[in-house]
């Protein structure tokens, strides 16, 4: 279970998170929505412990991850898998070496065994025959799939998705959505995704939380969000330029 309590974070004078509170139950698929610059990325970086809160806490199964020692923090990371926005594949390694990275490093597997598992994980995300290619030879959608295969290779308990559908064509985006749903069913993981793609959010979420001005303004099931009375959430999900949300850098 992931519990974010009253999280504050500033970068210089820029207050990004101002008391965000969110609870993600075990096995739940939570989608955090919000505009650009709303602090979604900062939030997800706190969950995996890249950033330390200025105030408040992030608890993973009741353990405050900000208080862990360096070794404990890396041990905790083994329970996580993360899919990055641009996939973040290691471009100096072949596809299978990317997928098998954690297996070889932490599982102490021999290359041959690790490659077999990597090929199997690649098949799970719908890729066959790409294991010996370099990441630069793959299309954007394929890179995301490889990124997902790498994220699930060491059977994590928690999966984090950073804008999983951004930059993909609608069909590829939907295929990634289907994969995320399949991963949840097959691996019964807890997952947190951040996105501004509402189609994706409705499809993959058990619950959706809206982040605005550094706070969670509403949390609810996709249906509750769809029928919300909250003016801020309404404006965001309908994608209107007119409403309480001010567009940064643009005067009304």
């Amino acid at each position: 279970m992931i519990e974010i309590v009253n999280l504050h974070k500033s970068f210089g004078k820029n207050q990004v998170l101002r008391g965000a509170t969110l609870k993600v139950e075990k096995g739940e698929s939570m989608v955090v929505i919000g505009g650009s610059g709303s602090g979604k990325s900062v939030l997800i970086k706190h969950i995996i412990g890249f950033l330390k809160p200025d105030e408040g806490s992030v608890m993973i199964d009741s353990v405050d991850i900000a208080n862990l020692s360096e070794n404990e923090r890396y041990e905790t990371r083994k329970r996580f898998g993360m899919l990055f926005q641009m996939a973040a594949l290691f471009d100096s390694m072949k596809v299978w070496e990317n997928v098998a990275f954690a297996l070889i490093r932490h599982g102490k597997l021999k290359d041959k065994e690790a490659k077999e598992i990597a090929v199997e994980k690649l098949r799970a995300v719908g890729l066959v025959g790409v294991e010996d290619l370099m990441p630069s030879e793959l299309s954007g959608g394929m890179k995301k799939r490889v990124g997902l295969a790498r994220a699930i290779a060491h059977s994590p308990e928690i999966l984090l998705y950073d804008e999983p559908t951004t930059g993909l064509d609608p069909i590829m985006a939907d295929a990634i959505n289907d994969l995320i749903i399949e991963m949840k069913k097959r691996l019964s993981v807890t997952s947190v995704a951040i996105t501004h793609d509402m189609h994706s959010a409705y499809k993959i979420a058990d619950r959706i939380a809206m982040l605005y001005e550094g706070r969670i303004v509403q949390t609810g099931t996709p249906d509750e969000i769809r029928n919300t009375d909250n003016a801020i959430v309404r404006q965001f999900i309908t994608g209107s330029a007119v409403g309480p949300i001010k567009i940064e850098g643009v005067t009304a």
């Binding site: 995996i48 890396y74 990371r77 990055f84 641009m86 973040a88 490093r105």
Partner: peptide, 18 residues
Amino acid sequence: GTMRVTEQIDALETLATN
């Protein structure tokens, strides 16, 4: 630098690698 801006260094961290 390229690894940093393409989040590959973050990816190493998520794969529990210092």
